[in-house]
Amino acid sequence: MSLTGLFLVSFLLVHLSGNFLLYRSDNGDAFNLYSHFMSTNGVIRVLEIGLLAGFLIHIFTAYILTQRNKAARPIQYAVSASNAKVTWFSRNMGLSGSIVLVFLIIHLINFYFPFHYGYDTYVDIEGTSYKDMYTLVATVFKNEWWYSILYILAMVLLSFHLQHGFASAFQTLGLEHKKYTPIIKGLGTLISVLVPLGFATMPVYFLFFN
């Protein structure tokens, strides 16, 4: 879980930095070039398989872990009260993860699959024709407002997921130290706030400012 989790965090960072190209005032040229590169470059395509594997392993191990952990307590408490020191998101990783997964599937249906199969709006950049991913993104966010809301909601849950997940991964790998653990925890909080926030600005931008 920890290794795939950290790998997926690295994906989020790359994905986010690429998506920031949406904000270039060039009618989406840079973003479209980036989309083209990502979808045609051989190395990236191989990495994409790795990414898919990362997701699948992360989800599969989460499923196995949850089953095992549920079996470890066949009878539940009549009353359960959690200690104030234990965060809600650390106890509900399955929930936040599942919602993020549902979002991810919708996200793929909205962007990934159309882009690769069927979407045929092209744009001309410096004499070459590229699929117009920028327009697709702008249209979805603008016209399908429910999707934007789901997107933002999913980012909130992703934030919860990362808030616990990032530092937890280091704990699981045994990387604990008086000096460095607070830094890791701080970094985790930073990532868990900034990354989802970064993504969430996109629907907001297209809904209200574009």
Binding site: L65, R68, A72, K85, H164, S168, Q171, T172
Partner: peptide
């Protein structure tokens, strides 16, 4: 026994 998900409830 179940596996650790680092909630910290044990230590708390």
């Amino acid at each position: 026994f179940g596996a650790c998900t680092n909630t910290g409830a044990c230590s708390a």
